[in-house]
Design a protein around this nucleic acid. Structure first.
Lengths: 228, 228, 228, 228
DNA sequence: AATGAATGAGGGTTCATTCAT
DNA sequence: AATGAATGAACCCTCATTCAT
């Protein structure tokens, strides 16, 4: 079997796969070192091509940056929206799903790095801000906000300020992504905070805060083993 | 934005104030443009000195970066700790004070930029991580954590996981600082989120989540005018 | 400007015409932009082939340059020589014919660009100089020089230095070609000098200078409409 | 005496002389190799500075090119104009002076290279054309044209077309400059044409053509030794 | 102490040339 | 024969750092 494929990657096959490979390499290095400190040559080398090849696909370093950001965010929101649409249970249950399923998937994927990338580079490339708001912040806020609003309407949640609640819920998740690619990536501090454990506790804590008085039965903070 | 540096080049004043002026200029530019994208010359110019002079005070760009970070964080924690020590009321009240007084002061000061700076540069200068953890994360976590723990011990709070609760409380605040210096600094998106309003609602929301059952009286989300 | 190349990619036509098309495209671009500033790809594109194909016909950019120069000059001199051979009238008449017929044809053809090309590139490719002298300068000078010498011998012309007279006659013509492809090609300065009008007056002026005293009847500079 | 000047070039002194040194080096190389084929580093090296220093004085290669052209042409025309203004003799004598004194000075100076430079680069930098016309072509044409016109008015010259005569007179001179820096610079063809001899004969020939009939006494083309 | 001219290594980008298809 | 993807040497320009004044 290994001998039967002589040297599979025909020119054509490579041509197809190349852009994705380049974007992956670029994302990794941009997130790790920052945009300005990353050399185009290193991106090329990591992707297994020469410097010149990179420029066959992206006309400049800035172009590459924007492609990296666009490519990674386009579909994540759509996936979350689908999760909401196809859900049947209570709003609390839906929020649990959204955060623990959808968001943790983002956290685990390379897309998590895009948050750090945006944070670090918006000031230098201001049109990223518009894109980010339009494609990520607004749909994301609307998505979670709709669930909270529905919960309030149905009497499941208290009458809180929807937008603030969404931020209380979401910002720590974003921060977690950013942390993963900054301080969290530095050896001795990597394991200080178990993300899955924290996310679980965070959602439960906020659901307590949101729950309408009659519904609330103080959960016994179930024995979830930490750092495991 | 920091108050515009007074352009009074009095020799006397200068010698004394020089290092601070250099650090201020460096912080402003490092936060705005990123470390790698900032030119030493621009720092010097902004501080009103020549390129050469900068090197009389800091031996290299990296040295300047580390000085910037160190200088800005040293005393903030101490101030918070003092606030805790001199407090008399309930734990809920103390948390309100800590977050709304102490933290908003940090948010308003140039120190808020340091969070973005650390996020962006730790991977390139890993020893920043150790410093940041020792001087900021750990004392900060311990400070807030102690208040939460005391609240649990006194029966004022539910028996939640202290560390997770601290993170639920603190991470949005850190995120706010980072936002202020990234997306928040981009013209059309600056005013989307009023930080003081959000901070208030965030603390109140979390205090509801923390409150022990008998104590809890669902607050009617008091009329705090939004965006004002 | 050469007549726009018909874009008829008939396989049959192509194989035959290919080398000429490539040379035409190369000449046009080399003259317009200079050799170093012209990209092989642009030559290929203008000729309607791919980059690789260009290398099937010419092994390098330098090779292409030399082919371009050689191709364009080979037969022009021969044409002029034929004009001389087949002429019957006076030497003055013959010079008029040579300059106004033969040379203006060169001026109008793409070959005129070759002068600029040689001027710009000889220093980088010195063997062009030898070729140019052997194939163009010497035969050309000899051609015109023979006419002048014949005129002197027959008493039609004064006893001037032949070589200098030839240069006085020819250099402005060469300069005209060069001008056409440099300053003359820049929009607002294109029409400042009508070449046909100047050429006519130039020849007549020099013929006055050459004419033996007894022959000379000062021509009334006949009414040739300027700039038409 | 050599020991008394320890190492004269103080920083200040160099700073003054630098721009001229850089322009000299740039002109030499641009004329020799062409603009595109000249490396900024080579210009710097020839001028005895490092690559970076070049950029302290000229912001880009193009900027350097334009400075080179401007610097070399500014005063040449003025010098010629002064020669005309301060002249007393006949128009023929004045033309002799202008061409043989003024123009040969240009020919001998590095400024002669600028003609080649303009020829080669106008198409790539079209605003050079405007500058060249305004500063060189027009004043130069007007200068010579005025002398010819005065000769006609005084009856010294025939009633020829002034502009055409000026071109017949001038174009060979320009061509000589261009030749000097192209084919003329190639070893085996350097000595083919003695410029001083040709210039002399060219002027005399044209003066014969210009002379009004009564004035004309066919000069015996005095024995000027060729190639000496 | 302060300056700013000078340096030169380094990085983004281009393009002549090659070669698998 | 023809293509165009891939290469990598080369070049323009920047900027951290040095050092003579």
């Amino acid at each position: 079997m290994p001998a039967s494929r002589p040297k599979v990657p025909t020119r054509q096959r490579r041509k197809q796969a190349r852009p994705q490979e380049l974007l992956d390499a670029a994302l990794e290095l941009f997130v790790e070192r920052g945009f300005a400190a990353t050399k185009m040559e290193d991106v090329a080398t990591l992707a297994g091509v020469s410097k010149g090849t990179l420029y066959l696909y992206y006309t400049s370093k800035e172009d590459l940056l924007k492609a990296v950001i666009r490519e990674r965010l386009s579909n994540e929101i759509a996936i979350g929206a689908a999760a909401v649409a196809g859900h049947a249970g209570s709003c609390a249950e839906l929020l649990r799903t959204l955060i623990e399923q959808w968001w943790l998937r983002v956290y685990d994927s390379p897309a998590s790095g895009v948050f750090k990338l945006i944070i670090t580079e918006v000031r230098s490339f201001p049109d990223i801000a518009a894109y980010y708001h339009r494609e990520v912040v607004e749909p994301g806020t609307r998505l979670i906000g709709a669930v909270v609003a529905r919960g309030i309407a149905s009497g499941e949640f208290r009458r809180v300020d929807v937008e603030a609640a969404v931020h209380s819920l979401i910002l720590p998740m974003v921060m977690l992504c950013i942390h993963k690619h900054s301080v969290g990536a530095c050896e001795p501090f990597a394991a200080r905070l178990d993300p899955r454990d924290f996310v679980h506790r965070h959602v439960e804590l906020l659901l307590v805060a949101l729950a309408a008085p009659q519904t609330r039965k103080a959960p016994a903070t179930p024995a979830r083993k930490k750092n495991a």
